[in-house]
């Protein structure tokens, strides 16, 4: 069972907000004592997902939650946008697939960097992606 211990939110409207989000995530991750490598992985994943958010949905909101499951604490980030949605999630999760001009590493790469990854998307309504990194994960 996952318990939410603390909550925070950052709204994303322009590229510079990415830096704000990174710093905020870093603050929370440091607070629960997450190691530097795991922090870097989490923030890198966040960076990928925020880029998608800006590129395809022109922004959105990122909820930051401190969660705990049993003896493990972690940081959960929920990316919510009201963009065009993803037509084929399986395809989007594949390495090297991209609809834009990029490496196509965003979604699959972000998934490799975190412990839990959930994606929900409705075409023309928006996408919600939730990622969790455990302190010692």
């Amino acid at each position: 069972m996952i318990v939410i211990l603390n909550k925070d939110a950052v709204s994303i409207t322009r590229e510079q907000d990415t830096i704000l989000l990174r710093n905020r995530v870093k603050e929370w991750a440091t607070k629960i004592g997450m190691g530097l490598v795991n922090q870097t992985k989490l923030i890198t994943a966040a960076s990928e997902l925020v880029r998608n958010m800006l590129k395809y949905a022109r922004g959105g909101v990122v909820n930051i939650e401190i969660v705990s499951k049993g003896r493990e604490n972690g940081v959960r980030l929920i990316f919510i946008d009201k963009g065009p949605g993803i037509h084929d999630i399986n395809l989007a999760m594949r390495d090297g697939y991209t609809t834009g001009r990029s490496l196509g590493l965003g979604l699959p790469g972000a998934r490799r960097l975190v412990n839990e990854f959930e994606i929900q998307s409705v075409v023309n309504e928006g996408t919600t992606i939730s990622i969790t990194k455990w302190k010692n994960g």
Partner: peptide, 14 residues
């Protein structure tokens, strides 16, 4: 390059 960044890049697949 910092160690944490190197590990993350490799994990990312890059």
């Amino acid at each position: 390059m910092q160690p944490a960044v190197a590990i993350t890049l490799v994990e990312l697949g890059l």
